[in-house]
C-alpha cells in the first residue's frame, strides 16, 4: 500500500515522536510538580520558558537549538567531545527538537491534573504512615495519570508533524531526519510529487485524528476508573 520511501518517513516520524515523548514525559512531570507545588525564586521565569515554544516560530526554536546543541555550540560541542554524541542533523537531534516543541503540551496537561488533586488525600496517606516519596508514588502519581496520559498522547500526535524546528536543527536527511512532514514538503517542492504529497497529507491527517481520539478515549476511561 505504501512505497518504501513512505514507510521510511512514517517509521521515522513514529520513532522520533516516541523518543521525544519517552524522554520528555518524566521531565514534564518534574517541571509540572515544580510549577504547581514549588515555592522558589524564578518560578514564573521557568513557567514562561517552558511555554515559549508555544508562541515562538518553530524556526526560532530550531535556530536556538542549533546555537546551543550544534557541533560548535557549548552543549553540542561538549556532548560530542565527551560522549561522541552528535545531535545536529541526526535522528536524536530531530527527537530533541520535537520534544522541545511538544514539551509545553505535556506540562500543561500534567499540571492541570496535578492542580485538581485534593491535597487532603495526601494528608490522609501521611497519617497512614506514608513518607514524602511514598505518597508521591502511590497517591499523587496515580491520580495524575489521566493528565500524564493525555499530555503524552497529545505530544506524540503533535510530534509526528513537527516541521519547522526539525528542519532547522536536524535538516532534511533521507532515512535519518526526513519525517512525514519533511517528506511531504520535499514532495511538494518536486515537479512530479503531487500524488505523493496527497498520500502523505492523507496519512498525516489520519495519524493526527487517531492520536487525538485515542487521547480522549484513554483519558475518559481513566477518569471513569477514578470515579469522576
Amino acid at each position: 500500500m505504501l512505497s518504501p520511501d513512505e514507510w521510511e518517513a512514517l517509521r521515522l516520524s513514529l520513532g522520533i515522536a516516541l523518543r521525544s515523548v519517552a524522554v520528555g514525559l518524566p521531565l514534564a512531570i518534574l517541571v509540572a510538580v515544580l510549577l504547581v507545588r514549588g515555592r522558589f525564586f524564578g518560578r514564573l521565569l521557568l513557567d514562561a520558558l517552558v511555554h515559549l515554544p508555544l508562541v515562538l516560530p518553530p524556526v526560532v526554536v530550531g535556530y536556538l537549538l542549533l546555537v546551543l546543541f550544534g557541533v560548535q555550540g557549548p552543549i553540542g560541542g561538549w556532548l560530542e567531545s565527551t560522549f561522541g554524541v552528535r545531535l545536529a542533523f541526526t535522528r536524536a537531534g530531530a527527537a530533541l527538537a520535537t520534544g522541545v516543541m511538544a514539551f509545553p503540551l505535556m506540562v500543561r496537561a500534567i499540571r492541570l491534573s496535578l492542580e485538581s488533586i485534593d491535597r487532603g488525600l495526601e494528608e490522609a496517606a501521611r497519617t497512614l504512615g506514608a513518607g514524602r516519596f511514598d505518597r508521591f508514588v502511590t497517591i499523587t502519581l496515580p491520580l495524575m495519570a489521566p493528565g500524564i496520559l493525555a499530555g503524552g498522547v497529545t505530544a506524540f500526535a503533535a510530534g509526528l508533524g513537527e516541521f519547522g524546528a526539525v528542519i532547522t536543527f536536524a535538516a532534511n536527511v533521507p532515512g535519518e531526519t526526513r519525517t512525514l512532514p519533511l517528506a511531504l514538503y520535499t514532495a511538494i517542492q518536486s515537479p512530479d510529487g503531487d500524488a505523493l504529497a496527497a498520500r502523505l497529507a492523507a496519512l498525516s491527517f489520519m495519524l493526527g485524528l487517531a492520536g487525538l481520539i485515542m487521547a480522549e478515549w484513554l483519558g475518559r476511561s481513566l477518569q471513569r476508573r477514578l470515579g469522576r
Binding site: G120, L121, A124, A125, R126, T127, G129, G131, P142, A145
Partner: peptide, 19 residues
C-alpha cells in the same frame, strides 16, 4: 511527623483513595 506518629485519622469527608 504525622507519618511516624501512629495516630489514625478519620476525616469528615472520608478521603478514600479513588484509584
Amino acid at each position: 511527623p504525622p507519618e511516624q506518629r501512629g495516630v489514625g485519622y478519620v476525616f469528615q469527608d472520608a478521603r478514600l483513595f479513588p484509584h
